[in-house]
Simulated assay, not measured.
Amino acid sequence: MIRALNRCVAGLVAVVFLAARPVPVLGSPAQATLLADASYAGVLKERIRGAKRRIICAFYLFKATDRKGNLPAGIAQDLAQARARGVEVTVILEGEDSVGRDNRAAAGFLARKGVRVVFPRGRRTTHAKAVVIDDRFVMIGSHNLSHAALSRNRELSVLLDAPPLAAQVTRYLEGIR
């Protein structure tokens, strides 16, 4: 009886493991760059400034302030400048909880500059932190757009040069409504 129970549990664990396995997303190897701690902001700004066609991103928190040297405010400016030069820019932000007020302030600035801002409906929290630029570059990880996250916190993200992954992340982000 115990052996039969052990085999049953082992079979169940195998089924759960197989169902939980990640689905391969890359058709070819990706060029990856680790973005630890404060290195994220400079790379994000550089990629936004170099964007030619499209930027789509999602953040749980986008806390731009009027304080001198505020890194998220600089990123908001870069997104607005990208839009002004003809880049399609979409920013997806969480609208509820304690971050909603900060996000709405950033959204107001961005929307006035022609950036499309989306606050998803429904009860699901948008906790993703992802950027796709020109259907090629993907930045994904733990960084929110707050001055602390971009300058002091222990954060870890990655920049991938991977068009197949960019397409999948874009589809995912476009599905957040």
Rank of each mutant, 00 (worst) to 15 (best):
N144I: 01
P22T: 09
P29F: 06
R49V: 14
A111N: 13
G122P: 05
I140W: 05
Q168I: 09
L26R: 12
E174W: 02
V169Q: 01
A128E: 13
A41W: 05
P164N: 09
D97Q: 10
K113Y: 08
D66P: 07
T90G: 05
T65G: 08
D161K: 06
L18M: 12
R85C: 07
A105P: 00
A41P: 03
A10K: 06
G27Y: 05
V117L: 11
L44R: 00
A149R: 01
G114R: 10
A64D: 14
D66Y: 06
A58C: 11
K63Y: 15
V117A: 10
L79Y: 02
R116A: 12
N144E: 03
A4G: 12
L145R: 02
I140C: 09
R54K: 14
V89Y: 02
R177C: 11
R53H: 14
A10V: 02
I133L: 14
D97M: 08
Q77F: 03
A38V: 07
V132K: 00
L71I: 15
L61P: 02
R112L: 10
Y60A: 03
A58M: 03
L44A: 04
R53G: 10
N144W: 02
K113Q: 15
I56D: 00
G114N: 12
V16Q: 07
G11H: 03
G95K: 11
A106N: 09
A58Y: 00
Q31K: 14
V16H: 06
P29C: 08
A32Q: 11
I75T: 02
A4P: 00
V89Q: 03
I2R: 13
G27L: 14
G175E: 04
T65N: 07
P22D: 07
L165W: 04
E174T: 05
T33Q: 15
G50I: 03
F119P: 09
A32P: 01
